[in-house]
């Protein structure tokens, strides 16, 4: 049983670490702010829960496990709000997303003029 848990925890930690680095690489490679937000989302939505579950599987069950679960819920619950706040502030600041779309104009419905 403990061997299975150890393997599972190792798998979670490895996957989480890999995703973490992917997010960092995406943060550097993406061309503009709005696409960088998506890259940063990779590390916060999947890498953080994976790494924390890896940690959870290594610890013995105690009050600390509850704290790890609380951190997981907190990161997952606050990430969309923080991301949305950043995107909104950026739009207020006058930045517009880079577009490679198929020639479709999106600025015309009045919503882009905040």
């Amino acid at each position: 049983m403990t061997v299975i848990l150890e393997w599972l925890s190792g798998l979670c930690l490895l996957l989480g670490g890999g995703l973490c680095i992917s997010g960092g690489v995406g943060l550097l490679r993406m061309p503009d702010f709005f696409s960088r937000v998506h890259a940063s989302g990779v590390t916060e939505t999947l890498a953080a829960p994976l790494l924390l579950s890896g940690l959870l599987l290594q610890m013995e069950l105690s009050l600390d496990s509850v704290k790890v679960i609380m951190i997981m819920i907190l990161v997952l619950a606050t990430n969309p709000t923080a991301t949305h706040a950043m995107a909104k502030a950026t739009l207020h600041g006058g930045q517009r997303p880079l577009e490679f779309a198929n020639g479709k104009d999106i600025g015309g419905d009045g919503s882009s003029k905040l």
Binding site: L19, S22, V25, S35, F100
Partner: peptide, 20 residues
Amino acid sequence: NIDLVRRIWDPDLPIRPTWQ
């Protein structure tokens, strides 16, 4: 996430951002 990680590591960076 799987889809996005595939896009990030692709050397051509196959993204077409849109805002709609």
